[in-house]
Design a protein around this nucleic acid. Structure first.
Length: 349
DNA sequence: TAGTCGTGGCA
DNA sequence: TTGCCAAGACT
């Protein structure tokens, strides 16, 4: 199809001039000169970028690659160090699967990543998107790399009326017909760069888009009306208590169970999180240890599928089965508990 | 298959 | 303040 040939050439030419300079990326000029991307760095960046913005993921990528330069280095790292290094990045199952994957590559594949989409898909934490992305970007396989950017670009190109998420299979079919088999890795990155910088969710920059003359949504005059989406359910609120127990300069922490919310991460001791607020008397009765507990305010935190109000109780004392950590060294905590700990420690009501 | 699983920036 | 969203995977 001639239109598809032109579209591919136009987008690749745009990418050659406008590719973002990213620390894990081999740019189009270097790629044309034969430089290969390091599969470890491609994989690590792709996992970190799942549902995560480039500015948020970038410092974590630099920290991880400086500390663990190869997949075998990462495979040899203790669980607690990797979970602590991931703290603040969210979706902590990614960190658990990251380690499982690194160890599988190190132990079962001689420290070398599989070089096919099917082989990559078998590794923990690599789903359809990430397996395709690593196959294309690291190994130049003609994989159909479809993320949220690509879904948006394709839905606009063809003005797909079916709303997301139901439209995902159709958008993937449409994307598959476009894959540039001569430069698969650059094609995947070009489509994602276009989505991230030009074909943005709001206020797309169609006057700078190399594909505008192919775009059905642009032709309607309201391209930001795509992709169509089904309405989301309201976010419920939950209530809990977090206990800030100090012993001199140390704070009592616990290790959360390996699965579920914030699984495997360090945390403040907490009550259950329920739909009804906790009274101060209830909160004290549920405390992890007897002490002179006093209320020191509350913090709000928003998770993907619920909002949390965390009442803060503070006391000086002792408890069994906790991990005493210096109060100035709380970087291993997920954001919700870092926020709660800082608020509880600064609030001397 | 629909629900679960974080975070921070921004309109 | 609230909702939306950003390179999804897993169960």
């Amino acid at each position: 199809m001639k239109a598809a040939v032109t579209l591919r050439a136009q987008l690749l030419a745009w990418y050659d001039q406008n590719a973002r300079d990213l620390p894990w990326r081999v740019g189009p000029a270097d790629r044309a000169a034969g430089v290969r991307a390091d599969p470890y760095r491609v994989w690590l960046s792709e996992v970190m970028l799942q549902q995560t913005t480039v500015p948020h993921a970038t410092p974590y990528f630099l920290k991880f690659t400086a500390r663990w330069p190869t997949v075998s280095d990462l495979a040899a790292a203790p669980d607690e160090e990797v979970m602590a290094a991931w703290a603040g990045l969210g979706y902590y199952a990614r960190a658990r699967n990251l380690l499982a994957c690194a160890r599988a590559v190190a132990n079962d594949h001689g420290g070398v990543f599989p070089d096919t989409e099917a082989g990559l898909l078998k590794l923990p934490g690599l789903g359809p998107y990430t397996a395709a992305a690593v196959a294309a970007i690291a190994f130049d396989r003609p994989a159909n790399v479809v993320d949220g950017n690509v879904e948006r670009v394709v839905s606009r190109l063809f003005a797909v009326e079916q709303p997301l998420p139901a439209a995902k299979p159709e958008l993937k079919r449409l994307a598959a017909a476009l894959v540039a088999e001569d430069r698969p890795g650059d094609w995947a990155q070009a489509l994602m760069d276009l989505g991230a910088t030009i074909c943005r969710p709001k206020a797309p920059l169609c006057d700078r888009c190399p594909l505008a003359d192919h775009c059905a949504a642009f032709a309607t005059g309201t391209p930001d009306a795509w992709p169509r989406k089904t309405a989301k359910a309201a976010r419920p609120r939950r209530h809990g208590v977090a206990y800030v127990l100090t012993r001199g300069d140390q704070v009592a922490l616990v290790r959360r169970p390996p699965k579920g919310l914030l699984g495997g991460m360090l945390a403040l001791p907490t009550s259950d999180w329920r739909s009804e607020p906790w009274s101060e008397a209830e909160a004290i009765s549920a405390a992890p240890a007897p002490a002179a507990w006093r209320g020191v305010g509350e913090v709000e935190h928003v998770f993907t599928h619920f909002s949390l109000t965390l009442r803060l109780l503070r006391a000086e004392g002792d408890a069994d089965g906790v991990i005493w950590s210096p109060r100035g060294d709380l970087e291993a905590l997920p954001s919700v508990f870092l926020k709660a700990a800082r608020a509880g420690l600064s609030n001397l009501l």
